[in-house]
Design a protein around this nucleic acid. Structure first.
Lengths: 376, 376
DNA sequence: CTGAAAGCGCTTACAG
DNA sequence: CTGAAAGCGCTTACAG
């Protein structure tokens, strides 16, 4: 509903200056431009076509696009579903390609006619999200977390359940546990790494950087991880892979190499959707609902831009830990005490014991009776 | 570049009438409206914001959205990649939700400010694509084929290779071969079914509708297919699943049920991306590059709307047939003559023989030396 | 059912 | 570096 006229009024300048600021005219004094853009973002300005108003929400990456990753496609489906409720559309935009070097992000989004933007980011470009938040342009960051109070975000906290997953391996008797993550980490992968470190530290197992693998999150990447893992002299008895494609690729390669899961090697994966069920044995995994992240993000965003809410979005959705068939005690010859003063026990019994400590019967450990984490 | 003014001139009406026609004002005589809209589509009208012009291409389903299917996410990635070259953006629109009942598709797209549209459709809604083509609105249909000369499309012809795949099974000695496809078929699935029928007919094997399965294209759907298949008294020795998720889900369930692939059951899948490599054994599969379909579709479309080309798009990309480890001769007790007058032979030999008839050495049959189909 | 005219939204040459 | 004014794009009340 806000026109250049209204912004001009609020910012105390002429409509000419507003138009120039929005279009990044270098003639405008930076200070004036900044003021205008802030007002424009705040009142939710969108260039209108005649009397009509656009209903476009942007989907932007601060780094490379990863559209085909199961996480992204699930997020996008959820986003589109959330937009349905207010009849908004999703525009996939390319910031690197289209943002002019001398233009701010908010300016760029306004120029594109966007009402708001959903951001995907990685650790190295988190600061871009803060800049956007500072400009007051309506936004939600998916899958990162921020201390700055003006950044809207929604994420899944996988650290707690990652630690829990690794502790589960330790409880089964594993002491030498490998870890795999994406080459370029995002918050999620770092969280999972942090959970892994935490669990090891808690049980006085020292972290061996030699068995922390960083490969692209593809099936092939997972295959390479498995090859690297099994080629070692001091072979780990378990691995936690912090990404669905890494997990599936690793299991596939294990089959090819004749590595029996879970008899010879226990594998814990991570799942954003249902990929843990694609392989055999079904992966024990830390899971999050990526579709829900997208849905809640976009639902909040349309409500924010339509004025239906003025609350910020700062939400963390719990993940859950699901025990399936890819984990078991380590092979007997490699078994060691699980904890100080506690002898490692026969595989099935260990599994049953874990079930019992969780308040489940011995039959409760398995796919149909998932152990879901409580928040700490 | 075309304004209401120009359209008015070309259509021989006032700009008022043009505006009304574009906005679906019921006061306009249907005949006048149709004429105006045709001119608007033809000259590539887009409502402009001030002096700027939108660069949005729509992505629309004529039926339900299937965004998370590997085919769709690969297509979308390719589409976005193709748009990069001319700095266009992709808007995911929802026709069912937003198109007013009394509004034409072209009207709807124009109102949304789209320069062109990429269409995904199923067999039951093919006619919508024809209507859109008749309105002369810039479009490409992905993965269907049309006789009408004004419909632009790009598809992969999977019929030929589907027949080839089934013939390969027959050459291995299989006579009882099941088939699985999505509940609501699109052109692709029907093509694959047609290929299956063709191959059976060619070898005088009668088609048994009892072993033609129709389930949703999900992992769970594939699992159900496998359960249904194995619960039969007259168990088939092979199955061709016309969808990647059906294939992966079926293999997973086979593992769970203890069905050995390919010893007890040969499985041929279909792959749009690289999912055949996600399972063990790697699926013998008919494959197409969905990413390329998307890329070529959007690349042509932006060239068409920017006037860089005036050629129509009517392209069929060949699929290819890749032999991997999920296929072998049927179990001995079930083996029957592969063809009239030709005795079935020992498994390995049959495989080698097929390799030889294809001009490959006996080592040539396998993942690293794919048999790619020539067009007929 | 159609159009001339009024009027808002936006941008841009011109003036300061 | 900024603004008043001209002017295009579009829509809509008003007239016929």
């Amino acid at each position: 509903m806000s026109s250049v006229r209204k912004i001009a009024e609020l910012a105390g300048v002429s409509i000419t200056t507003v138009s120039r600021a929005l279009n990044n005219d270098p003639a405008v004094k930076p200070q004036t431009s900044k003021k205008v853009l802030r007002v424009a973002s705040r009142v939710g300005y969108v260039p209108s076509i005649g009397r009509r108003i656009t209903t476009n929400i942007g989907f932007a990456y601060t780094q490379e696009r990863t559209l085909t990753h199961p996480f992204d496609s699930a997020v996008m489906e959820g986003v589109v579903r959330g937009l349905d409720e207010h009849r908004f559309d999703l525009v996939i935009i390319n910031v690197q390609r289209d943002k002019r070097p001398d233009e701010s992000h908010a300016q760029f989004f306004l120029r594109k006619g966007l009402r708001g933007v959903i951001l995907r980011t990685m650790a190295a470009t988190r600061h871009v999200c803060c800049t956007i938040a500072d400009s007051e342009f309506p936004h939600v960051v998916i899958s990162e977390q921020f201390d700055a109070p003006n950044v809207n975000f929604i994420d899944g906290d996988s650290r707690h359940d990652s630690a829990r997953a690794v502790e589960y391996l330790i409880s089964l008797g594993h002491r030498r546990i490998a870890f795999a993550m994406h080459t370029i980490p995002d918050r999620d992968h770092l969280d999972r790494f942090e959970g892994y470190r935490e669990a090891l530290a808690k049980h006085q197992i020292s972290l061996d950087e030699e068995i922390v693998f960083r490969y692209p999150f593809t099936l092939a990447g997972g295959g390479t991880v498995m090859e690297m893992l099994m080629s070692r002299g001091d072979r780990p008895t378990a691995i936690f892979l912090a990404d669905p494609l890494l997990g599936v690729g690793a299991v596939k390669k294990a089959h090819e190499m004749g590595v029996r899961i879970p008899d010879e090697l226990s594998v814990i994966g991570f799942d954003d959707t249902d990929m843990r069920h694609a392989v055999h044995p079904t992966l024990t995994a830390v899971c999050q609902n990526a579709n829900q992240l997208g849905y809640e993000a976009s639902r909040w965003l349309v409500r924010a831009v339509t004025g239906a809410t003025t609350e910020p979005l700062r939400k963390t959705i719990p993940t859950f830990f699901e025990i399936n068939q890819s984990t078991a005690p380590p092979p007997t010859r490699l078994r060691r005490p699980a904890n100080r003063g506690e002898q490692a026990i026969d595989g099935t019994t260990a599994l049953e014991q874990y079930g019992k400590t969780q308040g489940l019967g011995s039959r409760g450990v398995g796919r149909d009776a998932n152990i879901r984490s409580a928040r700490p």
